[in-house]
Design a protein around this nucleic acid. Structure first.
Lengths: 136, 136
DNA sequence: TTGTAAGTGAAAATAACTTTCATATAGATA
DNA sequence: TATCTATATGAAAGTTATTTTCACTTACAA
C-alpha cells in the first residue's frame, strides 16, 4: 500500500491505513458514515472529511471499489487491481468478488451498432447468499 | 401510463405526466434537480418534492430507470418494461438502451460457485458517442 | 355529484458531501 | 539524524441532496 501511494505522490498516514483496514475487514459494503464510525473506535480523532478524502484516493488507486446495485450507491468494498465484479447479497450486504465477465463480444456488437467507442462497464449481480436463504 | 398507475392504486396527475414527459424528451440522463428545472418551465407551481416522489413511482413502475455508471448515480432516463440495459456517453451523457445482455450462463456459474440465489443484475456500458468522438 | 383515498406544496429537518484554512506530519533530502 | 516542504489533517462553516410533517387539494370510483 505505502509504495503505491508514494508512487502517486500520496503519503501513507495512520488514518489512511485505518480506513483501508476497516473496509478490508468487512464482509459487506460500507457507507462513508459507517466506515467513519468503525474507524473512530480505533482512531478517535479522525474526521469524516478525512474518510471521504481517503475513500476517493483508495478508489482511484484500486484498493477499494464503490458498489451500486440494490440501493448501495456510495458504499465501498475492498477491491483488487485486477478486473473484477461484485455479487451482492440483497439481504445482508455481503459482497463476493468474481472475475471472468466475458463481455467483449457484447461490447463489440454494441460498438458496431451504435458507433460508440466503449470505455468501460459496470456489472453487478444482486442475490441472496446461502446464509440469508436459510433464514428467509 | 394512466392505466398502469391506476392498477397500482396511483393517480395520474398533471405533475406526474409532466415529469415523465420531461425525462422521455431528454436524450441524456437527468438529475432530480435538472428535471425539476425543466418541468417548472411548463408547470411553474410544481415542487421539488413532487419530482422526487414521482421519480420513485415511475421507477417502480418501470417507466424510467436510474443510471449509475460514470458518476451518474441518481440520474434518470426513460425506460421500457422489457429487460434492457444502458450505454452511456461519458462526455455528453447521451444514453442508448439495448437488449440481449445474455448473462444467464454467467449467472448459473456464479450461482453454483457461491450458493447465491441470483435475483437481478446491473449492467451499464460507458463510452464515447459518435458525435463526441468527432469533437475530441 | 360526491366522498375519499391519494397527491400536492410549503417549510423545516436531516443527511450527504464539500470548501476553506490554519496546523501538523510523512518522508525525501542534506 | 535533523531539516524542510509538499501533502495531509481536523474544525467549522457552507452547500447540496433528500426526507419528514402537515394542512390543503384533487383524481377518480361509486
Amino acid at each position: 500500500m505505502g509504495g503505491t501511494l508514494r508512487r502517486r505522490g500520496y503519503k501513507l498516514t495512520p488514518q489512511r491505513r485505518a480506513v483501508l483496514r476497516t473496509v478490508a475487514l468487512s464482509q459487506d459494503h460500507l457507507t462513508p458514515a459507517a466506515i467513519y464510525d468503525r474507524v473512530r473506535q480505533q482512531h478517535p480523532g479522525i474526521g469524516l472529511l478525512t474518510v471521504y478524502r481517503t475513500l476517493q484516493i483508495l478508489t482511484e488507486l484500486g484498493f477499494i471499489c464503490e458498489v451500486h446495485a440494490g440501493g448501495s450507491c456510495g458504499s465501498y468494498i475492498v477491491g483488487s487491481p485486477e478486473h473484477h465484479h461484485h455479487l451482492i447479497c440483497s439481504n445482508c450486504g455481503k459482497v463476493i468478488n468474481f472475475t471472468g465477465c466475458n463481455l467483449s463480444e457484447l461490447e463489440q456488437r454494441l460498438s458496431q451498432q451504435t458507433g460508440f467507442e466503449i470505455e468501460s462497464h459496470l456489472l453487478e449481480f444482486l442475490g441472496c447468499c446461502r446464509s440469508c436463504q436459510k433464514i428467509a
